[in-house]
Simulated assay, not measured.
Amino acid sequence: MSETKRTVAVVDDHPIVLDGLINLLNSEKAFKVSGRFTTGRQLLDFLQDNQPEIILLDIALPDINGMDLFDKIRALSPGIVVLVFSNHNEPSAVLRMLEGGVQGYILKSTPPQEIIHCIKEALEGRLALSGEVQSILEAQKRQVLTTQTIRLSAREKEIVALIAAGNTTAQIAKTLFLSKFTIENHRKNILQKLQVKNVAELIAEAVKRELI
Rank of each mutant, 00 (worst) to 15 (best):
D58M: 07
K108R: 06
Q140G: 10
F46K: 01
K208T: 14
A75C: 06
V102W: 01
L61E: 00
A9M: 07
V207R: 10
E138Y: 10
Q113C: 00
D19F: 07
K197N: 12
E184D: 15
L24T: 03
V102P: 01
D19C: 06
L83N: 06
L57H: 09
I106M: 08
V144Y: 09
E201D: 14
V196R: 03
A60C: 08
Q113K: 11
E158H: 11
A165V: 00
S86G: 04
Y105D: 01
A165M: 06
P112Y: 07
L194R: 07
I115C: 01
K188Y: 09
K120L: 10
K72D: 14
S179L: 10
E158Y: 07
P52D: 08
R74N: 13
L25V: 05
N198T: 06
R142G: 05
P111L: 10
T182K: 13
Q113Y: 11
R187M: 14
F70R: 01
E99N: 09
L69H: 05
H14D: 06
D12P: 05
P91K: 07
L43M: 04
G104M: 04
R6Y: 10
A170I: 11
S92D: 11
D71R: 15
V8L: 05
N185S: 14
K141A: 13
L24N: 02
K174C: 02
P15W: 05
E124M: 07
P91T: 07
F85R: 02
I172Q: 03
T146R: 14
L162Y: 12
Y105M: 05
N87W: 08
E121I: 10
V84L: 01
E121R: 13
E201R: 08
A128T: 02
V17C: 00
V94N: 01
L57C: 11
S179Q: 12
K180M: 13
I16T: 13
K141Q: 14
L43S: 03
I150K: 03
N89Q: 12
L69D: 05
L18K: 09
I64E: 05
K72R: 15
